[in-house]
Computed example of a mutant assay.
Amino acid sequence: MLLFAAATAALVATSPAVAQTGGDGADVRCLLVLQAIARDPKQQEQAGRGLYFYLGKLAARGASSRLEAVMLTEGQGLNSQPKNQAELTRCGAELNQQTNTLRAANTRIATRLGATPPTAK
């Protein structure tokens, strides 16, 4: 996690305050921790999937234009191992919940169609 701390510090020099919605900050913190985790080749694929999920959420709310400013602001709070781990746990729980929702929908649809459901990773 030292790599994570260094990566986060590099992203968050000084930043101006930025207006954001309640979800933007939480989703950007997920982006930051997942970017750091993605530097580990063993976790790169899974972290990459999560990055796209959170980028999609932010884009759907129109936050793409202010992404950099929000990243700088939110990254300042990710300055300790316990905070980083707490964010990773929160983001992982959300990703798992969404994956389970997709799996359940696939199973219901496959049952209705008499097919084998696809697997959601």
Rank of each mutant, 00 (worst) to 15 (best):
A13C: 13
D40F: 04
R39E: 11
G22F: 06
Q20E: 13
A93T: 05
A60R: 12
P41H: 11
L3C: 04
L78A: 05
G62I: 04
T101F: 06
S65D: 13
Y52T: 04
Y52F: 05
N100F: 08
R90L: 10
L32R: 08
P16G: 13
A60L: 07
E87S: 04
T8R: 00
L55A: 02
G22Q: 08
G62M: 08
A19N: 10
A5L: 15
Q46C: 03
A105G: 10
A36I: 00
K83Q: 10
A47F: 04
E68G: 10
G56K: 09
A26S: 12
L32F: 02
D40L: 03
A60K: 11
G62S: 02
S64E: 13
Q46P: 02
T111D: 07
A7W: 00
V12T: 14
L11H: 12
G48E: 08
A19C: 06
V33F: 00
G62L: 09
T111P: 02
L102C: 14
R90Q: 11
K42R: 12
A19I: 13
V33W: 00
P118M: 06
T111R: 12
Q97Y: 12
A110I: 06
E68M: 13
L88P: 00
A13D: 14
L102P: 10
C91H: 02
E87A: 06
V12M: 07
K83V: 04
C91S: 01
A105Y: 06
R39H: 09
G114C: 13
Q43R: 13
T111I: 07
G56W: 11
T73Q: 11
K42Q: 06
P16W: 15
A105F: 07
R108K: 11
V70G: 13
S65Q: 11
L88T: 01
Y52D: 09
Q20P: 03
L32P: 01
V18F: 09
Q44R: 15
E94L: 13
L2N: 04
M1N: 02
D40W: 03
P16K: 15
F4G: 03
G23Q: 15
I109Q: 11
Q43D: 10
G92W: 01
A86F: 01
L88S: 02
L34E: 09
G77V: 05
L3H: 04
R39K: 14
A110W: 09
T89N: 08
N100A: 15
A19Q: 14
A60F: 04
G56N: 11
F4T: 11
A104D: 13
